[in-house]
């Protein structure tokens, strides 16, 4: 069944009335209510189901479009195009082309959970943002975004050793994203700290960088988590109708 709705409030969808009088008052011009209706038939019926199948997206069907998420959103305050309420609307209606216009900013969700706090329907919009970013990447609409490169490198370190060494996280991330480690602000911080740190502490930190902290007897946990990760990756790809074979990626 086609979706019938007012078009989105965008300059190209606004109608101009040159001589419009209501009760004798001239209301000519561009108004956001002067919008053509439209009927959509090219929506993607599987989109909501696919995003709901990815971790975090499970409750997207509960959304009633109140907008509390966008109103509370940290990133929306910096960039009005970052609009969880609107994206959930697009996903639920399968309006893929409209969603793809914003594909390069969805990953910027900072997981502050203000949306989840405000949501009266337990949609977990923060999870929906992660699921959506994941969907965009798996479907090949975006490359792997910096946050996912960071999350994967970080998680990999935990899975391997049980722990995180933050110096290593920073070095690896800069290397993987092709940035130089000697950013002027990082250098300034390191010099400021080195001036005040006692020598013994500096040596201790040097040791941590050589002998990475790790959880003892971690090998069975490591193997168990790796198995689970592979199982979930295959399940996610299957839910999105993607090949799941070893070389399917």
């Amino acid at each position: 069944m086609p979706i019938h709705e007012k078009s989105l409030i965008r300059p190209e969808n606004l109608i101009e009335h040159k001589d419009l009088f209501i009760d004798g008052i001239d209301v000519s011009g561009h108004w956001s209510t002067f919008i053509n209706s439209r009927a959509l038939t090219d929506y993607d019926e599987s989109m909501q189901e696919e995003i709901a199948a990815l971790p975090g997206g499970e409750n997207i069907h509960r959304c009633w479009q109140c907008g509390s998420c966008t109103n509370a959103c940290t990133v929306n305050a910096l960039n009005p195009d970052f609009n969880p309420r609107y994206w959930i609307y697009l996903i639920r209606n399968g309006m893929k082309q409209e969603l793809l216009l914003d594909k390069d900013i969805v990953w910027q969700c900072v997981s502050c959970n203000k949306c989840t706090y405000a949501c009266p329907r337990d949609v977990n919009p923060e999870g929906v943002m992660k699921a959506t970013a994941h969907w965009l990447e798996l479907k090949g609409h975006t490359e792997k975004k910096p946050s996912m490169i960071f999350d994967e490198g970080f998680s990999q370190q935990i899975i391997e050793t049980g722990k995180i060494e933050d110096g290593l996280v920073i070095r690896q991330f800069f290397a993987r994203t092709g940035q130089k480690l000697a950013q002027n602000w990082l250098v300034a911080m390191a010099i400021g700290l080195a001036k005040r740190l006692p020598v013994a502490m500096g040596i201790k930190m040097g040791f941590a960088a050589v002998f990475h902290p790790r959880t003892r007897g971690w090998s069975r946990a490591r193997a168990a988590i790796k198995d689970y990760v592979h199982e979930r990756e295959a399940a996610n790809r299957k839910a999105l109708g993607l090949p799941t074979g070893e070389d399917g990626r």
């Binding site: 999350d151 935990i158 990760v229």
Partner: peptide, 25 residues
């Protein structure tokens, strides 16, 4: 004794249930 990382803010973006396991351990 011999604790492990809780999963921080990153592991849940790979899969939330791994974070649950890490913290539960």
């Amino acid at each position: 004794e011999n604790w492990n990382c809780c999963g921080a803010m990153e592991v849940k973006n790979v899969d939330p249930k791994i974070q649950t396991y890490l913290s539960a351990r």
